[in-house]
């Protein structure tokens, strides 16, 4: 997993509440058995004017000129500014994979759906919750100022605006640690192997039927 410490990047505003995972990555693209390559179909239905198919070459597809990410000024974007309840819908991890593959490292919104929020951290993507007011202000700034950049300092838990304002955000310390170091969560858990075995033995004595073989 890619570590994230301080990230400076261009910001694109996606002005829509309740963006669900079907919108982030429509289901016809979930059929891949790989973890990479979903970026070209990120927001597929909003981004292209035709209907996308899995395994299709997207370079010649007609782009929707009204969609924010298709505007030349947002070409090298890496921070997505979004509205409330971003990532609602299914638990599919393809949503953060697609965002990450496209080049996003952070998503800023007033609120996120639970599962999506969790899934981001597992994929080196940082979801940042700011207040409605702060998000409104960023939308305004982003829309007026071409090339609007933000700096995300994870260690200090602040988003720094070009004017030098610091917007602080909350993050769970464990997730922060993993993201800062780019640590694999499974490896961390397996360091507790003995504790897990001990629990399992006790659990099996108490509830032997849970360990029955399935036919």
């Amino acid at each position: 997993m890619k570590a994230l410490t301080v990230h400076q990047g261009l910001v694109a505003p996606l002005d829509r509440a309740n963006v669900d995972t079907d919108m982030i990555i429509p289901k016809q693209f979930l059929k891949s058995i790989k973890r990479t390559g979903f970026g070209k179909n990120l927001f597929d239905e909003l981004r292209y004017l035709d209907v996308g198919e899995a395994d299709q070459d997207c370079s010649g597809r007609p782009l929707n000129p009204d969609f924010v990410l298709n505007q030349p000024r947002y070409k090298d974007v890496s921070i997505l500014l979004a509205r409330q309840n971003f990532g609602c819908g299914s638990s599919r991890e393809h949503a953060p994979w697609a965002l990450e593959d496209y080049g996003f490292r952070c998503v800023i919104a007033p609120s996120f759906a639970d599962i999506f929020y969790n899934n981001c951290f597992k994929n080196g993507l940082l979801p940042i919750v700011l207040s409605e007011q702060q998000v409104d202000d960023l939308f305004a700034a982003c829309q007026t100022e071409e090339g609007f950049n933000l700096t995300v300092d994870l260690e200090r838990q602040v988003v720094v605006t070009p004017g030098g304002d610091e917007l602080s955000f909350e993050i769970d310390p464990f997730r922060k640690e993993c993201l800062l170091k780019g640590l694999d969560e499974i490896g961390l858990t397996l360091q507790e192997e003995d504790t897990i075995r001990a629990f399992e033995n006790k659990h099996q004595k108490k509830f032997p039927w849970l360990f029955q073989e399935l036919a």
């Binding site: 599919r92 991890e93 599962i115 597992k122 858990t189 897990i196």
Partner: peptide, 11 residues
Amino acid sequence: GTSEVEHVLAS
């Protein structure tokens, strides 16, 4: 999520 599927399989 799928990362957690892997996590549960492994641990």
